[in-house]
């Protein structure tokens, strides 16, 4: 009988770095978080909606946003999930994260939920139910990114 032929493989890694310009709007947002532990959104004058995170323009009205509005630190949960699977390059499980509507905002901001017992997901889901009040906590050492803050049940 013929032997099955040898099939080869090759490991290839895409290792490539990018230096993305954040622009003025996101730069202000992150410096405020880094230097003062404060979160700002941008208001669209036409829709009157406060976009958080801040956008230089609204993707609905296509008009430039016009005004900085401080939001939070309180808010309510809009969405959440608990991850129990390890994915390459993502944090070790389990962890909880999701989206929070900060007080004064019209759109929700993503972040981790900390200090939640994730042993039983169904019990945790009741604790973090949509609508639950949370408060934003800031790290002592901040570098100006979205991991400088997280949410905890108020």
């Amino acid at each position: 009988m013929e032997q099955p032929m040898e099939l080869l493989g090759r490991q290839e890694v895409w290792n490539i770095a990018y230096d993305h310009a954040l622009g003025e709007t996101a730069s202000y947002f992150f410096t405020q978080i880094r230097d003062h532990g404060r979160i700002f959104g941008r208001r669209c004058a036409q829709s009157n909606r406060v976009l958080v995170p801040p956008r230089a323009f609204s993707d609905e009205t296509l008009l430039p946003t016009t005004e900085w509005v401080e939001v939070g630190p309180g808010g309510r949960i809009e969405a959440f999930t608990f991850v129990y699977e390890q994915f390459n390059g993502l944090p070790p499980p389990p962890y909880a994260f999701g989206y929070v509507l900060l007080d004064g905002a019209d759109t929700a901001l993503g972040g981790y939920f900390r200090n939640v017992d994730l042993t039983n997901p169904r019990e945790a889901a009741e604790k973090l139910a949509i609508g639950t009040r949370v408060v934003t906590k800031f790290a002592e050492q901040r570098k100006g990114d979205v991991l400088d803050f997280w949410f905890e049940i108020a």
Partner: peptide, 8 residues
């Protein structure tokens, strides 16, 4: 923006 599909 997923967060824009929530909120008010």
């Amino acid at each position: 923006w997923m967060g824009d599909r929530m909120g008010t």
